[in-house]
Simulated scan of single mutants.
Amino acid sequence: MIIEINDLVKRYGKLTALNHFNLKVKQGDILGLLGPNGCGKSTAINCILSLLSYDKGDIKLFGEKMSPTRYDIKKRIGIVPQEVAVFDELTVIENIDYYCGLYITDKKTRKQYITEVIALVGLEDFITFLPSKLSGGLKRRLNIACGIVHKPELIFLDEPTVAVDPQSRNKILDSIKELNRQGATIVYTTHYMEEVEQLCNNIVIVEKGQVIAEGTKEQLKSMIKVNEKIVIEIPDFPTAVKEKLLQLPGIIEITYDNVFATLNTEENKAVFAQVLHLLEENQISFGNFYTQQPTLNDVFLEITGRELRD
């Protein structure tokens, strides 16, 4: 195991931030660490990195006990914080060189690593720019480059695509995939479920300082009642028709946003035809009519009772 945490407890006075928190991350994983603000994700990461002391539990990285003085372990870790952490007075290449120099003393190796990471994040045309001259997306790419330039084996990425343009977002996601292909194990936190769907081979959901669900996206989706959704574009959706639909076997819940009605269903092969028949029987006009598989957001909502971004 690259990360192994057992019964981690962290208290702030009467507040228990981590309540017997357990986590295992295998080599080569891209782990999606999900949870609403205040659930304990950042506290757990800071404890893993020995930036915070904790009240109880054990933390091992690379099979060895982690502590504040284990600089040999820390050299094998890369951290990309949510807040951009670069020097405003240094250019792009000077920033990357500074962070690389904290780990790599050989000049030839450092130059090679810098060239490679600049290409990885797509900053070749901006190496002489000061951070103040970069767009938000390019600053995020620089932030990533500074955190991974020393080729760490374990990388923590804290919401690296927040508030970036689509081009930078795609470049960042592609870079993360490439880092993983090169052998890096990645712990990834985000509020964007579609990124987790795209990137992560294993997912952990944290709530109130505890891991409440974990597994692959397929395993997590199998835990919830919703088998699929029926989505109907419907300009007029009478309450009486909605109540009739709810009486059909397999219909769990119906939501309506004045354009689309979404029917959450349990496994029932006949329910699609039954819904269609009921609408036609009640002379309800509708447009698009299709099914959707449950998403990770559905999983999170059912397990925690709230949206990830709440």
Rank of each mutant, 00 (worst) to 15 (best):
N258E: 15
K225R: 13
N170F: 02
D174M: 12
K217N: 01
A261R: 06
S175H: 10
I212V: 15
T255Y: 03
P249I: 03
S175V: 12
S175G: 10
N180R: 07
T216N: 10
Q219E: 14
I205C: 13
I230L: 07
K242R: 15
I230D: 00
E267F: 15
I186Y: 04
V204K: 06
Y188F: 15
P166Y: 08
P235T: 04
T161G: 09
S175L: 08
K269A: 15
K242C: 11
A270E: 14
V241T: 14
N264L: 09
V164P: 10
N227F: 13
S222A: 13
T161I: 14
V241G: 14
C200Q: 12
Q210H: 06
S222R: 08
G215R: 04
T255W: 01
L246Q: 09
P238F: 06
E214T: 03
K221R: 08
V206C: 12
E178P: 10
L246V: 02
I203K: 11
L248T: 10
Y188H: 14
N264E: 14
N258M: 10
N227R: 08
S168Q: 04
C200E: 09
V162R: 11
Q182V: 04
T185N: 10
M223C: 05
V206W: 09
I252F: 01
V231S: 01
D236A: 12
K217M: 00
E233C: 12
T189G: 05
E218L: 04
K217T: 00
I172V: 11
I186N: 06
